[in-house]
Design a binder for these strands. Sequence first.
DNA 1: TAATAAATCAACACGGTGTTCGATTTTTTT
DNA 2: AAAAAAATCGAACACCGTGTTGATTTATTA
Lengths: 189, 189
Amino acid sequence: MKNPEHRVQLTKRRLRDALMTLLADKPLRSITVKELCQIANLNRGTFYAHYADVYDLMNQIEAEMKAGFFAALEPMLSAAGQLTPPKVTKKVFECIEANADLCRVTIGPYGDKEFARRLLRESKSDIIQSYRLCFPNADEWQINAYYTFVSGGCFALMERWIREGMVESPETLANAAERIMECGVAFLQ
Amino acid sequence: MKNPEHRVQLTKRRLRDALMTLLADKPLRSITVKELCQIANLNRGTFYAHYADVYDLMNQIEAEMKAGFFAALEPMLSAAGQLTPPKVTKKVFECIEANADLCRVTIGPYGDKEFARRLLRESKSDIIQSYRLCFPNADEWQINAYYTFVSGGCFALMERWIREGMVESPETLANAAERIMECGVAFLQ
DNA sequence: TAATAAATCAACACGGTGTTCGATTTTTTT
DNA sequence: AAAAAAATCGAACACCGTGTTGATTTATTA
């Protein structure tokens, strides 16, 4: 066959697109398998051949997004060599801009905020470790508290940025985040 | 009757308790009206006499919580007279500790994180205003970015605190939050 | 005690679920 | 190009929760 995409992949893509369409004006909880298949022009039985329910579909899509996001992020990180906490921020914001379409859905009004949080949680240990090296005098509790606060802050900033249409450049956002993390309220002076 | 509570209020309380019970080991989406009424020892028809569906019940409970939380918070704020940004933090953490049972549910694994966010959003304008007064040189974008970051950070810190059983005192948390907001990474030195 | 409000019970049609079957279409293998 | 394997289809099925109804019983209020 000429087409490199197998039938299964095409089916999954159609379901994925249908879900994204519906997710634009409905919360996940009120999306049914039936309407999903109607939009995707698929038999309902075919859905159950691949997914257990709508939430399973969503989970698998998120898993793909996560993989894609990390795949896009990693070369940036490894290229930067040693990851110094403030430098990473810019890369992350750039990566979000590059994957804007994916991020918009998960952050959007009907998106699953938990997804992004889970994503943050996975890179936690790496970042914490780098804090330990940079600040050997700080105790574990402080490091954890700082990480929690700062990642929560970055996430909130990112969320607002995406929600309001990514008007500013990723650099602007990254700089703001870095400066707040670095100097606190002095950011306002 | 001796009991000052009307029958309706008792019914609503039973449904509220049933929901909290189920929410302890199930996400909201997989809680049905049927099982809710079985646990509450109520007729299913009675449920529909008060609520449209499970989400409506949850919303009404959240509205009560919000009212209760603000009612508890306001005297603290007004007693403090002029609200200086860093001082408020401690009061908020104390208020969370006082309403621990309520917070635990909404923050918990199956809780609705959106509730707390909505709560934060409502006090936004007051806090932003106080920033404007304290930092007349900062432009609007900076103030908004700082508020977004900092409230997100406090929320994350609070979330972790509740999730891990509120071991530390509210003062400890408030101090950490204040110091991070104030001096950034210098918190770790 | 009489009147009113609230909760109960049983029954109903409705719609989505998840599964099954055999038939049909598409892809892969030989 | 023919045969085998895999994926989709279409229809039917029992199942379960939904939301509503009307008549009845129980509690509250006046």
